[in-house]
């Protein structure tokens, strides 16, 4: 754990990249916490800052009715992080989306493909260095 805060009423915890899987298992299985519902997993590109990316998860416990935001800093030079899809299957598609949009690679993900963009798409559109005016029309399938 790197730091915690609860600004604006959202409890937040920042976790080191290497420990995420361990922490995720603990968050789900500990009876006091019991975060069984993964609400959201996304990423933020802090362009020109270090570390560049941040993977953000929002968790909810159905039984205890509390929420937690988990943030994991990810280096821009080697954007990899371990997958949590074995803990919450919901993360499967969310991680595919983050990979598609930010190019963050989830190690051990069962099916890491693009989800919203087409397979021939080059680049990752939600990165801040991807210009909004750039066009990549898909004329036809290549094979």
């Amino acid at each position: 754990m790197i730091s915690t805060h609860s600004r604006l009423g959202d409890d937040t915890v920042v976790i080191a990249n290497s420990k995420i899987l361990e922490v995720a298992r603990f968050l789900k299985e500990d009876p006091e916490l019991a975060f069984d519902l993964m609400i959201d997993l996304t990423a933020v590109d802090h362009w020109k800052n270090k570390p560049r990316f941040e993977v953000v998860m929002h968790l909810q416990s159905l039984e205890k009715n509390h929420r937690l935001r988990v943030k994991v800093p990810v280096e821009g030079s080697d954007p990899t992080i371990e997958t949590v899809s074995s803990v919450w299957p919901a993360a499967n598609w969310y991680e595919r989306e983050v990979y598609d949009m930010f190019g963050i690679v989830f190690k051990g993900h069962p099916d890491l493909r693009r989800i919203l963009m087409y397979p021939e798409f080059e680049g990752h559109p939600l990165r801040k260095d991807y210009p909004i005016t750039k066009r990549q029309p898909l004329v036809g399938p290549k094979d």
């Binding site: 993964m38 959201d40 590109d45 929002h58 299957p89 919901a90 598609w93």
Partner: peptide
Amino acid sequence: YIVSDGTDRAWRVRCRPPCFPIMG
């Protein structure tokens, strides 16, 4: 989920769509 950097434009806007996990 909105991240603001203090300017008039959001740094990041994330929409958590309710259909997405159901389709997943």
